[in-house]
């Protein structure tokens, strides 16, 4: 019989992260389907409050706690996860593919003689476990299974609903950890230097700016400043997250006018991010395949492009408006502003 461990961690407020709660749901579903035992593992400075949320799932609760675990750091997190896995005697370990666990769980899998698969978008199979993930940057979808155990399965965010139930008292078993000498200190988080927080993973809408924004417009001139104002204005008014094509962020190194608030962190596509948002609006972007693979997890897609033959028109977007994005965005911002007012 499989023994499932759901690995979770807390945010700054001490509650389980949303991605962790999604894992609680996924693990409960899988345990029920396989008739497997279920354990929840929590990594936190203090797990008392956090444990009350998954407690109603009825699983055994394990925690590694202490100040060393307030920071996301390889040496301490790997030791914590290793201890939880050993204590749970897990054969299947589920965890979110967030930065914290993605950093350490491959190492932990190695320490336990196990194997790992990441970025899973589904876990299927009737009596066995079948993991679905993308290969070649969201271009080929594969389903795989493994015989080796323990098997670490890291799920993408948004594949399951976050676990919700009324909080309940929790019996948490503390798992002791022997930490190695810690050589790394986490100093904290840094937002982009420009102060413009343009990446918002929780936003409903992704707004993507393509290279057309900084190309010559119909008057033969480049209007980078105006483009910047329109884009930032829209992000503020619509609460959208900002993505970019590679060609636009690459312009930073090419001596062309650039949008100063864009960095490679905004880049969507083959060599960029593959974010998850309900909707996506592309502007001034041709919709080439290497970029569009980054839209794999965007629900509804619309595009504004001057090119009626751009890539978006061929089954990559739901609606393509053949129009000047400068004009449309100015009108759009005006309407959104009026609505807010």
């Amino acid at each position: 019989m499989e023994s499932i461990l759901a690995l979770t961690h807390v945010d700054e407020s001490g509650s389980l992260t949303k991605a962790s709660l999604e894992i609680v749901t996924a693990a409960a579903e899988l345990a029920s389907r396989l008739g497997a035992s279920l354990t929840m593992g929590i990594v936190a400075p203090d797990a008392k409050t956090a444990a009350t949320t998954p407690a109603p799932a009825g699983a055994r609760l394990l925690a590694v706690t202490g100040e060393a675990f307030a920071q996301a750091r390889y040496a301490s997190d790997a030791a914590a996860c290793e201890a939880l896995c050993r204590a749970a005697q897990a054969t299947i370990v589920l965890a979110p593919t967030g930065s914290r666990f993605a950093r350490v769980l491959a190492g932990v899998a190695y320490r336990l003689g196990g194997v790992i698969d990441t970025h899973l978008t589904a876990i299927g199979g009737a009596e066995s476990v079948e993991a679905t993930r993308w290969f070649y940057r969201q271009r080929i979808e594969g389903i795989l299974s493994r015989e080796a155990r323990p098997w670490f399965l890291l799920l993408e965010a948004g594949t399951h609903a976050a676990f919700t139930a009324d909080s309940a008292d929790a019996q948490v078993e503390q798992v002791p950890v022997e930490l190695p000498a810690l050589r790394t200190t986490v100093s904290g988080l840094r937002a982009p230097a420009q102060g413009a927080q343009t990446i918002r993973p929780d936003a409903k809408l992704l707004f993507v700016a393509g290279a057309g924004w900084t190309k010559k417009q119909s008057d033969g001139k480049v209007h980078a400043a105006e483009a910047g104002e329109l884009i930032l204005g829209f992000l503020r008014l619509a609460g959208a997250s900002l993505g970019s094509s590679k060609s636009l962020v690459d312009q930073g190194g090419d001596g062309q006018p650039v949008l100063p608030f864009l960095t490679h962190m905004n880049q969507i596509g083959q060599t960029g991010a593959t974010p998850r948002h309900a909707k996506g609006l592309s502007t001034c972007c041709h919709g080439e395949e290497p970029h569009v693979v980054g839209w794999r997890f965007i629900g509804e897609r619309r595009a504004i492009s001057l090119d009626p033959n751009c890539g978006w028109t061929r089954g990559k977007a739901d609606v393509v408006y053949v129009a000047d994005a400068f004009e449309v965005m100015a009108k759009l911002n005006g309407l959104l502003d009026a609505h807010k007012g």
């Binding site: 986490v186 982009p192 990446i199 962190m265």
Partner: peptide
Amino acid sequence: EGGKHQAS
């Protein structure tokens, strides 16, 4: 997450 960097 969130377009931020963790400094260590």
